[in-house]
């Protein structure tokens, strides 16, 4: 990896006792797979804390963001103890404005509350990744998913393709974005196209003058998605 191509390590506590631990874990995965693939990797906290030098060395030489479920901040503590200060330390319960009492620990019982919490936390992590990269990466340089150094932890999630003005445009994680919209009740009709555009814009740069075309293409793809589901 070129030194200029900085990657950000994200370390979640994955606390087993509380739902916020599950959210920290799944939001981290969401960032790795969908929101910032190629720019992020994750480190296995138990392995890191158990003394794995490769994991600790990565955290020493790369910016890291910790994502903890509760105020005990075990991930932050462990990272700073073994590898130095972190670039950002997030706490799920703070992002959500308190304990997620409607959430469950197991994904078997996962529902709307978990989906919304995971998205909210994932978007916050992604924003922190952007802020860290803006500080550490020279303009014009960024890590990409195709630099050949990706591992299983940071493999990009399969995306979808829409047709904009006759051109096929790939959008990472489109099925998941549509799933989120469907879960939030975005209608598969013209009144929902603005919401679709706004969500996709978070993850995919869209030139202002192409927004109407994207809006139309996204609606068509979303309608197909809803029919298939």
């Amino acid at each position: 990896m070129s030194e200029a191509m900085q990657k950000v390590g994200i370390i979640s506590c994955s606390g087993e006792e509380i739902p916020e631990g599950t959210i920290s874990r799944l939001a981290t995965r969401r960032v790795l797979e969908l929101l910032r693939p190629g720019a992020t990797v994750t480190l296995c906290l138990p392995l890191f804390l158990a003394g794995n030098e490769a994991e600790r060395d990565f955290a020493r030489t790369h910016p890291t963001i910790t994502v903890d479920g509760c105020e005990k901040q075990c991930a932050k503590w462990g990272t700073e103890q073994h590898s130095g200060p972190v670039s950002a330390a997030l706490v799920v319960s703070e992002i959500l404005g308190g304990p997620c009492s409607a959430c469950h620990r197991s994904s078997r019982e996962s529902g709307q509350a978990e989906k919304e919490a995971i998205w909210m936390v994932a978007e916050r992590i992604a924003a922190e990744v952007d802020a860290v990269l803006a500080q550490t990466t020279p303009a014009g340089m960024c890590a990409t998913a195709s630099d050949g150094e990706g591992c299983a932890c940071s493999s990009p999630m399969p995306g979808g393709t829409i047709t904009v003005n006759g051109t096929k445009v790939p959008i990472a994680g489109l099925p998941l974005i549509f799933e989120q919209c469907a879960g939030q009740g975005v209608p598969a009709e013209s009144s929902g196209s603005h919401d679709l555009l706004n969500v996709v814009k978070i993850y995919h740069p869209i030139p202002l003058d192409e927004e109407p075309a994207y809006q139309e293409a996204l609606l068509a793809a979303y309608q197909q998605f809803r029919r298939d589901v």
């Binding site: 994955s14 631990g21 138990p46 005990k72 075990c74 991930a75």
Partner: peptide, 12 residues
Amino acid sequence: QTQCLALLVKGD
């Protein structure tokens, strides 16, 4: 019951 592994490793 379960127990947070990270909390244990932290030495809580």
